[in-house]
Design a protein around this nucleic acid. Structure first.
Lengths: 344, 344
DNA sequence: CAAAGAAATGAAAACGTTTTCTCGGCACTT
DNA sequence: AAGTGCCGAGAAAACGTTTTCATTTCTTTG
């Protein structure tokens, strides 16, 4: 039962007094093998606790049954929920997942991408990525590893998204309708949220509101011991003429904003309106409950993984497949963190 | 530059007019190779965008440079933070991580364990696991894959923990000192939190308070579309004689309790005291701020991964290594969700 | 009863690497 | 001039599988 060191198929073969081919056949239940022999081999496999080496298997089968997940920040529950969705579709299909955390670092993102290709991942799910490495992405997608993006749009690459532009237009417009004119925008890296940023600018412009550079904050350092929303909020709220509303890139950053307002003894929404994005389960529990834009994280993960796996199959069958994009609807969740600004 | 299909080392060798051994030498910068030859080979490698197949590499080197993470629930930010800590130590060392989500399902846990061994993971971090599969764990740890536990104690296996027993004793005692006698305990699966459950029972007993089975709730189904804390709280609060305080296994479950109290129009802490465990960053932002027991998730991840990697090295060098356990201190964070019960 | 097919097995090639040998050539040392 | 040692390079074995091909034996079938 308990042998030390690792068993290989040839040792099993020797013990059973058959060839490796036969052992392989019983292992994979394919090809014809005598019932007695089969039983004997299986017995020995069981006794020795033998399990095939999947690396070797993958090498000859030309199939690793592995996909890679590249997320910017595992600490953000939104990504965790996506991952959950991904896993629920890929695990039953026998795929394992590599997890890579880019920390919003563009170099790490590229680095992980090639590492995962080297490790023969059959596909990669690129979640909320920057768009710097388009060339690399296309090259990999063409040659080695199918790629699908979630919450990111790249030309020629399958993706699943929500309508960020519309969602954010709606949110900003709503703030303006409430009477806000000094609206800040907090994000991690503008390259990672082009559409939302564009929506912010366009909606302001459409309403004849000037865009104030000081109201637009990015957090570009990549080592976050604490929520970057906090420091950005502190910065923007200490301006001589601070904003009356903050649109945060996502709920996670908005949590940092909440903390900043507590320290500064500002009340939400009387002194400051705050809007998030994602609608994390926890966001409705905050007091005041966070106004935000709902995205179906879990379903996005599922959809992305399904797309990816279909792409992997078609690539193996050399079946051409046209690009596709799945788009989920957003829902504006107006709760208690938004109100008319004080001045009115 | 852009060729389709995958390059192999022999194709590179052919193009460069050298043997594979030479290409391998320049790839790994080991052994002597002529400067000119080297340059030529490197040029071709670059042009073709060639990258070595790590599966094949792993096969001959007998080293996958991979570890596995087995967590019960990726949606719980506590685990996400642990993962973050793990990653920050293993990535710089060239290790990649497999992520497995057991969904609190004991069978899935075991299944992942053997799958990861088959995939030649050099080690596994078993996080907040049940203790059903001890035999399997020991067998794997002996033969194929080093194992380290986080937030779990298994005899003979390295682990990193906080002093759960003391932490929870303190918390329950504090509730009792406030005047509570009807204290509920909510958890996922008692097997996954023996120490905490034991502490709960012992502290009640020590204070002469009877243990009421109805106050002890487990959530054993494994498919959670929503926070199990919610339904357990609803159940326990609808008892004829409901508890005046709830000790939740962790903060994540406590969030569900919060939601239940909102629906039932119960006020925390006036009508119900709630205590969590973990001290997630978000917990201090809730209103009322959640009383909880602090655990250093990130550091626990780091420590676990360091332990694991040291074990892997000693195993490779056949250097014996005595078992070790690293223990972090907990801190009781008394905030606004606890108060004397109403009846007093 | 001969021919044909099927069943059961083994040998060997293949997957893409690394690594150990081996070997010739050249530069030193005496 | 002979021995020593290093440098640069290739051949081939090894890693642990799967799979194709070949071979033998057995069972059909007309």
């Amino acid at each position: 039962m308990k042998k030390s060191g690792k068993m290989t198929i040839v040792q099993i073969a020797e013990m059973a007094g058959v060839s490796v081919s036969t052992v392989s056949r019983v292992l994979n239940h394919k090809g014809n093998v005598d019932a007695d022999t089969c039983a004997r081999v299986e017995q020995i496999i069981f006794e020795q606790g033998y399990a095939p080496n999947r690396l070797a298997q993958g090498l000859v089968r030309q199939r690793s049954k592995t996909i890679a997940l590249i997320v910017p920040d595992i600490s953000n529950p939104f990504f965790a929920d996506i991952i959950h969705g991904v896993e629920d579709v890929c695990t039953p299909l026998g795929y394992s997942m590599y997890l890579c955390n880019s920390n919003f670092d563009h170099d790490r993102e590229s680095h992980f991408l090639v590492e995962m290709a080297e490790r023969q991942a059959e596909g990669a799910l690129l979640i909320s990525a920057f768009l710097q490495n388009q060339e690399l992405i296309h090259q990999l997608n063409r040659n080695s590893m199918s790629i699908v993006c979630i919450q990111t749009q790249i030309e020629g690459i399958d993706c699943v998204n929500t309508d960020d532009y519309a969602g954010l237009c709606h949110s900003i417009q709503r703030l303006i309708d409430l009477g806000h004119r000094r609206i800040a925008f907090l994000c991690m890296d503008k390259r990672g949220c082009r559409m939302r940023f564009q929506a912010y600018c366009d909606t302001l412009k459409k309403n004849g509101i000037p865009i104030v550079p000081e109201y637009i904050r990015e957090s570009v350092e990549t080592n976050h011991s604490e929520n970057p929303g906090y420091s950005m909020a502190r910065a923007v709220l200490s301006l001589p003429c601070p904003p009356t509303a903050i649109q945060s890139l996502n709920d996670h950053l908005a949590f940092g904003v909440y903390r900043a307002t507590q320290e500064l003894h500002l009340r939400i929404p009387q002194d400051l309106s705050v809007v998030g994005y994602d609608d994390l389960p926890i966001s409705s529990l905050l007091r005041p409950a966070l106004t935000t834009i709902h995205q179906p994280a879990y379903s996005m993960g599922e959809a992305g993984c399904e797309l990816l796996i279909k792409n992997i199959s078609s690539k193996r069958n050399a079946a051409p497949r046209e690009r596709r994009e799945v788009l989920f609807a957003t829902r504006y969740m107006e709760r208690d963190s938004t109100a008319p600004p004080r001045e009115l």
